[in-house]
Structure formats: C-alpha cells, structure tokens
Design a protein around this nucleic acid. Structure first.
Length: 154
DNA sequence: GCCAACGTTGGC
DNA sequence: GCCAACGTTGGC
C-alpha cells in the first residue's frame, strides 16, 4: 500500500475560496497557477491520488485552514501556461515541453476556520513550514503527527 | 500600505 | 558562477 501523504495548499479566497470549491462541479478544482519550482515538484513528483490536503486561505482578513480536501487527479500540464491572455501564461512553455503542472483537488469537508494565530499557539505545530518566518511556499508537506493533531482540534 | 524574506533574472 | 536588482508573497 502506498504511503499516505499530507499537504497544506494555500489559496487566496478572492481567487478560490473553500465555498467556491464547494460549489464547483464535483467539488473539484485544478490547482492552476503555481509558478514556483519547489511547489510544482511537490505536485508533479510526490502527490498521489488520495493524499490529504489542508485547504488554507492566505492573503485575506482571516488567514488559516478552512477545510480538508484530497488529491483527486495526478499532476498534468497546467493549461494556463499555454494561454497568452492568461496572467499565468509562460512564453517558454510548450505543449511538447510543459514547464508547469497541477493536480486536481476535491473537497472533503469545510471545517471551522483555524487561524494562523491559533496555529501559532500550539507547541505541537511549532515546526510547521507555514509558521516559519519568511515562509512563502504555497504548497508544503505536513507531518502525519501534525495532521493528526490538527484533525483533533477541528 | 508596509516590509521582511525569498526566488528569479541577467550582466559580467 | 557570482550577485545586485527586481518582483512577488503574505502576515501584519
């Protein structure tokens, strides 16, 4: 059996919020627009169908975990890189040689908003990547112990 | 709006 | 391969 992995994925609710996700067909969204190699590599190389995801609201009034989701489709080329009018267009990418990839993410459930301030208050979560000073990575792995702890406080 | 931190770019 | 300049992220 394949090892289960856990992730935290940031989304700006003004772009795609947890409620937006809930209203989408199949409650699923393509995680388009990632233009950071480390985050891309997590999606392309490590994510598997069924991996669990904390859906995180960033750059908003109440940053924090807003729900639980799962990876529902393995990584495939991000369509927006080929669309000249799209803000995520990448002139160096071609369909033959795509540069950016995304998985699909499906909602499991909306949760209460667990704010970053609350997260910072738990010693058990002190090593979480998103709580480290200066962290900007939009996709980060979550330790199983951290996942379980957060599930326990939802 | 501020600004620290970080990633990328490009001249050399 | 270095590194200064620049752009972006994201909490506050």
């Amino acid at each position: 059996m394949m090892e289960m992995r856990y992730w935290l994925m940031k989304s700006e609710p003004s772009d795609v919020s947890i409620d937006d996700l809930a209203s989408m067909p199949d409650q699923t969204v393509a995680w388009y627009g990632v233009r950071n190699y480390q985050a891309r590599n997590f999606m392309r190389d490590q994510m598997r169908v069924g991996d669990r995801v904390f859906f995180y609201h960033s750059t908003c009034e109440e940053p924090g975990i807003a729900g639980i989701a799962e990876v529902s489709k393995l990584a495939y080329p991000d369509a927006t890189q080929f669309e000249p009018e799209n803000k995520y267009f990448d002139p160096k990418a071609t369909p033959e040689n795509p540069r950016w990839f995304n998985v699909d993410v499906r909602l499991i459930k909306k949760t209460r908003l667990v704010g970053i301030k609350e997260l910072r208050g738990y010693p058990e979560l002190a090593n979480m990547r998103i709580l480290q000073k200066g962290n900007r990575l939009s996709i980060t792995p979550i330790d199983p112990a951290e996942w379980d702890f957060i599930m326990g406080i939802l």
